[in-house]
Simulated scan of single mutants.
Amino acid sequence: MEKTVWVSFDQLEAFMVDVFKSIGVPSEDAEICADVLITSDKRGIDSHGVGRLKPIYYDRIVSKKIQRPVTDFEIVRDRAATAVVDGHHGMGMVIAKRCMEMAIEKARTYGLGMVAVRNSTHYGFAAYYPMMACDAGMIGLTGTNARPSIAPTHGVENMLGTNPLVFGMPTDEGFPFTNDYATSIMQRGKIEQYAREGKDCPPGLIIDRAGNTQTDSVRILKDLVNGQAALAPIGGLEEETGGHKGYGFATVVELLSAALQQGSYLKMLSGLADDGSPKPYALGHFFMAIDIEHFCDLADFKKTAGDILRQLRASQKAPGKERIYTCGEKEHIAGIDRKDKGAPINDALQKQLIDMRNEQGLIQYRFPFEA
């Protein structure tokens, strides 16, 4: 029987820093990477937290050798309010944080700042970066392309990534408005979480080349890699349910993540060379900051934003529903609930943590699930 154990955020973050350092990530960069991951766990987004340490970062550096632990951050074009960066397959979180910092700095002068990136890697949960803008009194926006996953409307071949389009806006409440989600109904991180937990995916969200639905989480992850499965875009598989809208938004993100910086796109992001061997994913991202003070008083914006959200939550609820939420609220609630509990670590993740610890000789760590 599976046993989930809660592990403190402090221990997990310290462990992740040491793991990153042990595989060649510089100390300051390791702290950035660990902060992005643990912030995801703190917000209840288990699909993008410590559970991704081994498969998305550790393995790609250590065994697959398709990601560089030391980040060569190259600014290839720099204009007044814009810039283009080449990440040279370094640490996506490090690249992304520096890019949003650049966008914020430019926005202070010009009102708007935008930075586009090519040859990057997975940058963690996307809302981290718009939240940086919110902390600076600005509106933040980011998007990233990803491995082929989503089928275009009326298609069955995985072509587009899960391609989130994420905004962050400050409010006068205790948390900003953040709409962090993929442009597919189901995203890879959630499928990975289901696979770790031994659960099937809900039917109707993933199809094979024959157009049949798939639910086996482990098989889906394999078939997404070999091109035999595809995710449905937001709205579903048909135009009648609005699937073309999710498909359209995913395409917007693909265009902004590749065309602006002349980076890789669609099948070029498979992570596989012609002979089937692993190769860098060469992801593209974009970051925008909008300085609210160039438009109106920041306090006035926060008050109006808060009023809008409060009125939405106070509107009439559907029968049987206890409450209405606004974007970012559930993550805020999860943060309060988890503050003293930490993150839930199931059997599969426990094994991953122990394997990394033993492989890197980090013998100073002993976890609660080993008691």
Rank of each mutant, 00 (worst) to 15 (best):
L255G: 07
N212Y: 10
M114I: 13
T241E: 12
D18L: 11
R43V: 00
I66W: 07
S120I: 03
R60N: 15
K190Q: 13
T144P: 01
D297P: 07
H154Y: 15
M114D: 02
R209M: 08
D300W: 01
P148Q: 10
K106A: 01
G335Y: 05
A81F: 08
Y181E: 03
M131A: 06
M132T: 08
F249R: 07
K302M: 04
M132N: 05
T153E: 09
Y247C: 14
A334I: 00
I363T: 15
L260M: 15
Y325F: 02
V94R: 01
E254N: 02
K222Y: 03
Q352L: 11
A83K: 01
T215F: 03
V70G: 00
P26Q: 05
A250C: 13
H244F: 15
L260R: 10
R108Q: 13
N212E: 15
G263C: 09
Q214R: 15
D216L: 10
S184F: 05
R68G: 01
F167H: 01
E293K: 13
R219Q: 14
S27Q: 06
T121E: 08
G198F: 11
H285M: 01
L237A: 12
I150F: 04
L256S: 09
R98P: 04
G271K: 11
K64L: 06
D29N: 13
K303C: 10
G328C: 02
A80S: 14
G113K: 06
E31A: 06
N119D: 05
G24K: 06
G124F: 02
L260A: 04
G263W: 08
E293D: 15
P176K: 05
L260Y: 14
F167I: 01
M186F: 13
V19R: 10
R338W: 02
H48E: 02
Y265S: 13
I333D: 09
V115A: 00
I104A: 00
F15M: 06
C99H: 01
E240P: 06
D172M: 02
G189D: 03
F249K: 09
F369Y: 09
P202E: 15
E293R: 15
K339H: 12
I292G: 10
Y110L: 06
Y181K: 14
P130F: 10
E101R: 06
A250G: 15
M288G: 07
G271E: 11
A81W: 03
A116S: 13
H332N: 10
V70Y: 01
Q311M: 14
F125L: 00
